[in-house]
Design a binder for these strands. Structure first.
Lengths: 129, 129
DNA sequence: AATGGGGGTTCCAGTCACGGGAAGGTCAAG
DNA sequence: CTTGACCTTCCCGTGACTGGAACCCCCATT
C-alpha cells in the first residue's frame, strides 16, 4: 500500500504518517522508486496511534503504549499507570477550563451587549472589580 | 519601574513582558542605559493582559479586547461577542475532554492493573473492541 | 513523442505563547 | 575593584503537526 491508501484507511493525513515515520513510530519499507510501502502491520500500528491520539495521549505516551502493546511480557499495571497519569492531566485541564467558563459565563451574563460602552467584562479585566 | 519590579507587581515573567512588547501589546519607554521604563499605564495594561490570558483568551483576542478597553466609544456588544466566541471554544474543548475522560475512565476501570499482560486498554487501542 | 494529471518525495517555514540559555552591558554595595 | 544582581539582545526549542515549494513517477490520452 502507498501512503494515500493508508491515509484513506486510517483517516490520518499523509503528512501525519510521514511525521510518524520521521520520529520512528512506524517503519514502512521502500519501493525502488522511493515510495513508502506499508505492510498490514504498519497500518495496524497507525490505527493504534490514531486511537491513542484521539484519546489525547501525547506522542511520547503513544511510544510507550506501543512498546507495551508489542511486549508480550508486559504487566497491565504499567499500561494502567500511563492511562491514569494521562487522565489526571485531562481532569486538571477540565477543572481549569470549567473555572474559566464559569467566570466568563458570569461576565457575559452581566454584560448588556448593546451599543453603549459600559461593560462589566472590561471592568473586570481592567481590575476594577 | 524596571522590568523586574513590573514582573513582581503583575506576576508575569520578565520574558513574557518582553514578548508582549515585541508583539506590540505594550510600549514601555527606554532609559538612557537601554533599560525599559514602565509607566503605571503600562503596568495597568499588563495586568489587564494577565487577567485576559488567565481566562484563556488568545493573544489576538487580548489585542482586540485592549483596543476596545481603550476605545471610549466602544459598544459592549463587541466585547460580548469576543467573550462569547471564546466561551464557545472553551465549551467545545471541555466536551472533547469529557469524552476522553469518560472513555479512559471505563478502560482504566476494566484494567486489572496487575503483573499479567492482558489489558483492555491495549485491546481497545489495538482495535479489537 | 509530448502532455496532463494525480500520485509520490524531500525540505523549509510557520503555528502558539512563550521558556532556556548564551554573551554581554549596568548599577549599587562592600 | 570586584562581586552579584540586574538588565539587554539574540537564537533555539517546545508539540504535533500543517502548508507550500520544487521536484520525481506513472499512466493515459492526444
Amino acid at each position: 500500500m502507498n501512503i494515500g491508501d493508508v491515509s484513506n484507511q486510517t483517516g490520518l493525513p499523509a503528512k501525519t504518517i510521514r511525521y510518524y515515520e520521521d520520529i520512528g513510530l512506524v517503519k514502512p519499507l521502500r519501493d525502488d522508486n522511493g515510495y513508502r510501502r506499508f505492510r498490514s502491520q504498519d497500518v495496524h500500528k497507525l490505527n493504534f496511534l490514531g486511537r491513542a491520539r484521539a484519546l489525547g495521549f501525547t506522542i511520547e505516551d503513544c511510544r510507550t503504549l506501543m512498546a507495551l502493546y508489542e511486549d508480550e511480557t508486559r504487566a497491565s499495571a504499567d499500561v494502567k499507570k500511563v492511562a491514569r497519569a494521562h487522565m489526571a492531566q485531562i481532569e486538571a485541564k477540565i477543572a481549569d477550563l470549567n473555572a474559566m467558563r464559569d467566570t466568563l459565563s458570569h461576565l457575559i451574563d452581566a454584560c448588556a451587549g448593546d451599543d453603549r460602552p459600559d461593560c462589566p467584562i472590561l471592568r473586570d479585566l481592567g481590575g476594577k472589580a
